[in-house]
Design a protein around this nucleic acid. Structure first.
Lengths: 170, 170
DNA sequence: GAATGCAATGTTATAGTATAACATCAAGCA
DNA sequence: TGCTTGATGTTATACTATAACATTGCATTC
């Protein structure tokens, strides 16, 4: 059985987010350079905002944060940048939230699964081959050809769950 | 290994949809009677529309079909009915489409998975315990408590896929 | 039956998410 | 230079969903 592959964990208290974000941006720069696709200033800025934290961000929040100019950007600006970043595999959409989060492993092939905490709002990304293989197998049994899998799990992360108690305690 | 449990299949050509729909409505009636919850005329009508086919339906399409009165119903009418039907387990939301489909097995406990054909638009529901158990296990490893799972697979159903060819053929 | 309480529905307004369509700009190149 | 093409700007609008308050209608109690 394959082991648990955590692509993007719930950050620990000692997590240096600045480094985390910088490394995601660097990875995107590198990948685009290799591919000849253009990580423009706008797209880079949007990716930066997506990686501002481990909490999926809404398109209109990106919009609000994009400029503090008198005239703020219009929605297509953000949606187009997000489309690009998703095509390149740098950003995932969390369908059940209409929100976007950075991909912790661009280049990784195979489906991802997301765990989303209903309290702190943070999300983790895992890539469990067993889950996607099994779904693929089920699909095959129904003669169904898979294009894309979406798996999103909502619940409580370790940090947000009240401390466990021994049995018998109140 | 558990066997494939198809909750709501892609309908076959000999599928009697009238019977399929009627049985879903009867099941809802029965279940509500047991629970003491109220399947009002409006809610029943919405459930009927959700079951009009195996294609997930949009809220505003329900709205359009609800009355042909001069004054059509307002959105909250439909969303409230859908909320009720989802609470009771008669209807699922397909998050990746913002659409709703009837549940083929109200009362079934455990997570469902959906296969959605990008051509004909029809969706099938399966309940693979292996998938949800495995996801549950992964979550546990991360100390994450699961409330709800969403799994949606997009692709091509058997009927919409061009006939298979032998290797070597064009 | 009248008064009460409560769930369901009606109604109006608005918030939130996303795209169409066309204009403009900027960089590479014939 | 002028052309092509991809990126971005701009305006308008479509689509999805909920807040807030009014009204209705049924059940219960008196």
């Amino acid at each position: 059985m394959s082991t648990l592959h955590v692509v993007s964990p719930f950050p620990r208290s000692n997590h240096s987010h600045a480094r985390c974000q910088a490394s995601a941006l660097a990875c995107a720069e590198r990948t685009c350079a290799e591919r000849g696709s253009r990580l423009t200033a706008l797209r880079r800025r949007v990716l930066e905002l997506v990686w501002r934290s481990h909490e999926p961000i809404k398109a209109y929040e990106i919009l609000d944060r994009l400029h503090n100019k008198p005239r703020r950007a219009a929605p297509p600006t953000v949606y187009r940048a997000l489309d690009f970043l998703r095509r390149e595999g740098f950003v995932h959409k969390i369908e059940s939230m209409n929100a976007y989060m950075g991909c912790g492993a661009p280049g990784h092939t195979g489906a991802a699964q997301f765990l989303i905490c209903r309290l702190c709002g943070m999300a983790a990304e895992i890539a469990d081959a067993g889950v996607s293989l099994r779904l693929g197998k089920r699909a095959r049994e129904l003669d169904f050809t898979v294009d894309a899998q979406t798996t999103e799990i909502h619940g409580l992360c370790a940090g947000c769950r009240p401390a466990r108690r021994k049995r018998g305690q109140t």
